[in-house]
Amino acid sequence: MSQSHSLNNQTPLEYSTEDGRLKIFGFWVFLGAEIILFSCLFASYMVYLHRTAGGPTPDDLFNVKEFMTETFLLLTSSFTCGLATHELRRHNKTGVIIWFIITLILGLGFVGMEAHEFVDYVGEGAKMSTSAFLTGFFTLVGTHGCHVSLGILWIIGILIQTARTGINPVTARKLFIVGLYWHFLDVVWVFIFTVVYLTGMVL
């Protein structure tokens, strides 16, 4: 740690230009909007929780092992993404790329499992159109899943750019922002995990 401190005693690269500062701040504001978006989805999910219309209840559906694994994958990916940002601060291109690739793999694993979970549910007859509860469930969890998938595409794009041009103010900014985005999705998942899966199993 002490080493990284000595490396980072000046402004981080991503903040070194006016452009970088504006875009990072803008992204924070955008995340504010995203928080509202997910809050609405959470609130409506809670409202519809017991409106199962005779269809499957959360208890019937959720599989502890599955969602625990998903959680594990995503939380770990957030950690590796943090390590990538750490490497970014050290201007270590290879480190950044390696940790982001690991993040990607974990993220893909998560999305794959979630897709599998959805397919399973639909196979069991728990479809979007079955009940209000399921509409709410698929919408909330699906929106998060779409965000993660988009994040994966985004990371891939930025990794290609980093590989090509190295670490400079522009790529540093992009890597930093996509990292923020990834952590944000992770936090949202923590809420999904508690509000949807844990609550669903208990109540």
Partner: peptide, 17 residues
């Protein structure tokens, strides 16, 4: 989602509100 994919958020049936 309700209109295009058969969801039930705001329908009068299947638990919609």
């Amino acid at each position: 989602i309700d209109r295009l994919f058969g969801g039930h958020f705001f329908t009068a049936t299947a638990g919609g509100m």
